[in-house]
Simulated scan of single mutants.
Amino acid sequence: MPKTRRKFTQCPNCGYTFKDTNNYCPNCGQENHDLNVPVKHLVAEFFEGTMHFDTKAWHTLKYLITKPGLLTEKFNTGQRASYVPPFRLYVFVSLIFFFVLALTTESSVKVAGQEQGEAKAILPGVTINANVADSLEQAADSAALTRLKQLQNTEQLKALSSGLQEDAFMTEFSEKFASFSSHGEESKQKLIKNLSFMMFLLMPFFALVLYLYYRKQDRNYVEHLMFSIHLHTFYFILLSVAMLLGKLFPALNLEAIVLAILVLYLYLALHQVYKQTYLRTLVSLLPIGFVYLLTLAVFFLGTVFVSVLLT
């Protein structure tokens, strides 16, 4: 739908005399469009652009959700004008996902108690003792003194030096972990921010995995990257819906269903884009899925580790 323009005859910014075909000033770049009109015209123009965008977005989401891999195939064959660009779609959906994540999860790093020996909840399913930093520090000092008394030669000195460095690192990390756990909401937001960056790095890495696995098909890396972007965009949509349903209906156990949908979607998308038989696609799914899950686990643990160290 072309934009309805109210054109000037002369550029109000630099004075350039427009031609009938000029939508922008060739001299200064300002848009040739008069905004000095009644509010009702601006409102009508806004809805005109919004409805056009919504139509494109609707077609994009429809194919993304109901036709695994078809949107990627259309993009790779040059059918792009009718759909939202992959990067823009991913950014928009990921912003919604991390917003929903922040709303639906309780503070993932918080103190459960302050009394001596009382446990603290750090991450779901993980607890530490309230005075763990002090205990570790005392244990490290005690161990170091004991070994110091037993020294008899240079080799033991070197071994002790290495051990003390390890003890110092563990003590420092424990202190940072305790500090990370004591700043509940702040730590949660930091972790979510780092997770968004992690997922942004994961997409091109997964595309590289696909590029290496399907190298005999002689496809460009960008084609695999578009597949990875669309795949993770769908994953974000599915997980956002699952988190909202879990928040509204706490009794629902959606983990198995979500996992099944994730695997099925990847399988169908691989079949659609890479044009292998269903059996061959199933065989390909096993190593690709294993490498993906392993990479995701490593990236996640690395993100938590870095988040703690940067505390």
Rank of each mutant, 00 (worst) to 15 (best):
G163K: 07
Y63W: 06
E175F: 00
G184A: 06
Y278R: 13
T154Y: 12
L201Y: 12
P250G: 01
A251C: 02
F8H: 11
Q272S: 12
T55N: 15
L252R: 01
F47R: 02
F53R: 04
D54Q: 06
V241Y: 08
F299E: 14
V39L: 12
F46W: 14
M226G: 03
A159P: 00
A144F: 10
A44L: 11
L293H: 07
F305Y: 12
P287R: 07
N76F: 01
T55D: 15
L103F: 03
F99I: 06
R215G: 04
K216G: 00
Y267T: 00
Y24K: 05
K193Y: 07
P204M: 03
D34T: 02
F97M: 04
L225P: 07
R215V: 09
F99Q: 08
G113S: 13
M203A: 12
S108R: 10
N253R: 08
L244I: 14
K110E: 14
T60E: 05
K110D: 15
C28I: 07
F8E: 06
G113C: 09
A207R: 11
P26H: 05
L270K: 05
I65K: 00
V241G: 11
E172V: 07
L293K: 01
L42C: 09
Q150F: 03
L148S: 07
L279S: 14
V37L: 11
M199N: 15
Q150T: 13
T55V: 12
V222E: 12
G113D: 15
I257F: 07
M203R: 04
A119C: 01
G117S: 08
F180T: 00
L101F: 13
L282D: 04
A269T: 08
A112S: 15
A178H: 14
A207T: 13
L151Q: 10
G29W: 11
L301S: 10
P26Y: 06
N220H: 12
Y221E: 10
D167R: 13
C25W: 09
V306W: 15
S196R: 05
E186D: 13
A260R: 04
V291S: 15
V109L: 10
Y16C: 05
Y211V: 01
E115M: 01
S182E: 15
G184L: 01
K74T: 05
L262I: 11
V111N: 13
G113R: 08
H224L: 01
S94P: 01
L71Y: 11
Y235V: 09
G184F: 02
L148C: 02
V132C: 05
H224Y: 02
H224C: 03
L64R: 02
F234P: 11
N220Y: 13
F205K: 00
N32M: 01
F180K: 02
L201V: 02
S179W: 04
E185W: 11
F75Q: 09
K62T: 03
S228H: 04
